[in-house]
């Protein structure tokens, strides 16, 4: 494997469950040391892709190399080079912190003279000093996640797959977790991390947006933000929101309208309504407008616009 070969390379990677296509001809190339965020709504196919890349699911079509090894024919070699954190917490709740680490150290074949040092590192990384002998099921979410990460990196894998590692973890712990991810990346570890938290996308070097099995965009956060929304973005404070969105979706010049919290985000293209027309237009539909202002697009806006779906599906948390 040459120095500049990608750490992860997927070509037309496809997974079909019976007739249902969970991952659809996905192409992906991730360089060493990159942090790539895998972002998409539930059921988009993030986990399925990661499982194929870990050699846990056999691709139906296409191929993928991880650390230079083919995931279907050299799965065992792939496993020696990766650390994986599955979406569902999967350490042994009835074992203590130390016992879990020792167990994974054993099956990752960490050398005997190294294991103590590696375990110490994992424990301090997870901030679990003093809790080494607690049963894992009694730990709070953030600690559990960091311990799971600690177990996955015991053997110093050059590539990490983290499947929604921060779901269900409080914001403070999420931030700490991302700090850790950045520390690993600084050491040259390649990381593919899936999440459905949009705000976490900003922590990644690159973001891969995935929806219904298809990769719909990939790039750095600023590239994606610069991605033409097809118009200018306005934030509209009005009520009722649902009716406003409905009215605007069919209006001329409106590229997109979506609910963001308690406001409406509206993308206005050329040759139709412009911002000044909005209060009047909505007023005709019996909707009161209290504010219209231009806002810079967030990743969330980009994503919502890229995902063509019914309005309910657009409400990404």
């Amino acid at each position: 494997m040459s120095a500049d070969a990608p750490a992860i390379l997927a070509q037309a990677l496809t997974k079909k469950f019976q007739s249902f296509t969970a991952v659809d001809h996905l192409d992906l190339s991730i360089a060493k040391g990159e942090i790539v965020g895998f972002i998409g709504p539930n059921g988009a196919g993030k986990s399925t892709t990661i499982r194929m890349l870990c050699g846990l699911l056999r691709p139906s079509e296409g191929s993928a190399q991880v650390a230079g090894f083919d995931v279907s024919s050299e799965a065992e070699a792939v496993r020696e080079h990766i650390g994986y954190m599955s979406q569902k917490f999967s350490l042994y709740g009835d074992l203590t912190v130390r016992e879990n680490l020792r167990f994974f150290g054993g099956i990752y074949r960490v050398a005997r003279r190294e294991i103590d040092e590696r375990m110490k590192f994992a424990i301090s990384m997870a901030g679990l000093e003093g809790r080494e002998d607690r049963l894992v099921r009694t730990l709070a979410g953030g600690w559990k996640q960091r311990l799971a990460l600690g177990c996955a990196i015991l053997h110093r894998p050059p590539i990490l797959f983290l499947d929604e590692p921060t779901s269900g973890v409080e914001p403070e712990a999420r931030r700490r977790f991302w700090d850790l991810i950045h520390e690993f990346a600084a050491d040259g570890v390649t990381i593919l991390v899936s999440t459905h938290y949009m705000d976490e996308a900003e922590y990644c070097n690159r973001i891969a947006l995935i929806d219904r099995g298809k990769l719909i965009a990939i790039g750095t956060p600023s590239e994606l933000r610069a991605h033409q929304l097809g118009g200018e973005l306005f934030e509209v404070g009005c009520a009722p929101l649902g009716a406003a969105m409905k009215a605007l979706s069919d209006a001329p010049g409106v590229v997109d309208a979506a609910i963001f919290g308690d406001r409406l985000h509206v993308v206005l293209g050329a040759g139709g309504l412009d911002a000044a027309d909005l209060p009047g237009f909505l007023g005709e539909h019996g909707i009161e407008v209290d504010q219209v202002r231009s806002v810079p697009p967030s990743l969330e806006d980009v994503f919502v616009q890229l995902v063509s779906g019914s309005p309910e599906e657009r409400m990404i948390p």
Partner: peptide
Amino acid sequence: ERGTMEQLISTPVSALE
């Protein structure tokens, strides 16, 4: 059932082990 198997088989552990 507990989901620990997914983690286990992502490691280089052998069937005999």
